[in-house]
Design a protein around this nucleic acid. Sequence first.
DNA 1: GCAAATAAGTGTTATTTTGACACTCATCTT
DNA 2: AAGATGAGTGTCAAAATAACACTTATTTGC
Lengths: 234, 234
Amino acid sequence: MKKYAGQSAMLVAIDCIIFGFDGDELKLLLIQRGLEPEKGKWSLMGGFVKPKEDLEKAAARILKQLTGLEDVYMEQLQAFGDPDRDPVERTLSIAWFALVDIHKYEKQLSDDHHPEWVPVKKLPKLVFDHRKMVDLAKKRLQYKAALHPLLFELLPDRFTIPQLLNLYQALYDKKLDKRNFNRKLLSAKLLIKQKYKKKEGSRRGAFYYKLDKRKYYSNIDAFMSFLPAREIFS
Amino acid sequence: MKKYAGQSAMLVAIDCIIFGFDGDELKLLLIQRGLEPEKGKWSLMGGFVKPKEDLEKAAARILKQLTGLEDVYMEQLQAFGDPDRDPVERTLSIAWFALVDIHKYEKQLSDDHHPEWVPVKKLPKLVFDHRKMVDLAKKRLQYKAALHPLLFELLPDRFTIPQLLNLYQALYDKKLDKRNFNRKLLSAKLLIKQKYKKKEGSRRGAFYYKLDKRKYYSNIDAFMSFLPAREIFS
DNA sequence: GCAAATAAGTGTTATTTTGACACTCATCTT
DNA sequence: AAGATGAGTGTCAAAATAACACTTATTTGC
């Protein structure tokens, strides 16, 4: 078959902004870049899209390569295409953000990326335009999580309400009223209270909850806010 | 400088989903594709990104080429990268949507694209995956316009409130209560009432309003809804 | 075993926001 | 002058919101 004449191709890469939450701080999984230039510098995990691979698969492949995880929440953030963003040769990057349960993550044995979870609030200098990607991803996560139930993706299967509250407080860097938070959260009826309490971290212990998966998946695009309206503003 | 070895490049294109509003229906500016294959079929306006061009500039260039317009509201929608989306050769497309004042648009003289404004509700078959792009763009526009003041971009500098109401009704395909719409709209204090009325279209005539540009631009990311909450759902 | 410490859990109220609803007004046409 | 048409406007009841503080369950230390 004929080709489009006279058009110039470029490399297409994926970069992943991988969020995790350790119960206290919002974190990003960063690697030490394995290629020249900037080898050894902090970087987002990335890779090139293969000739017959679609973008979703490429993003999932790259995420799995670093984390071993599959079926992770991922969303296309934006394409970054500044002609000089990669000094080696023109490379378009499609940034995706991922929300993972930090406890499911295990370092891959064969991993020469030297990945580390780094607090979003204490990011090191990153290569290329990765800082812009991270900033945009954080903004997008703040935006979306203020309108839709989404942050559950960052928590284990069972979690406590104080854990969830902490997560929201970490993401928005704001103290929230636990009574109002509770009321809104429970009125969404997405949670199923468990019989057992989490014993660590407090004397009294907090009850575990699980997501009602059926309701959760059918409402993942629904509007649902557990925050005071004005917190939505960045 | 060295290149990344062994990676395969691909073409990168831009496609533009161009919305307009004629006072009655929401429309898209479509062209008849100028290249084989599918030459002559209905298509979004598009083009390849040039070797030293960034994505914003490429999108603006392509929009201008078709419409003659500059400084138009454009937003990156999503990258579409199915390996077979273009049968000729692998082409990644970054879709952008644009909101234009349909009355400012003039057919470009040198234009061999044969562009037409087509009602969104009566779309013809489109080439490749353009229909997916349009559907996503419409969804995104509905989403965003329900939360932020945005649709003003589709109207002329001065417009009447009934015009704006019609636009919302067209986008959501719903009748809205004009009293509630009015109250919410005016409470945002973005509009400046003009001295003159629009005489066409009604006996009494409706007052023109203009945007308070200062407030508008400083609130373009603010949350502001003129709709009943549940209309936000698609 | 009792007191102290700690985080979990829970209700009320005043204010604001929302949505449903119907009539009058200004102007042109005949 | 009467009729027709779309523009413009106000009320009220219900729901949602945000602000606010005390009690409870359990462990720890004496």
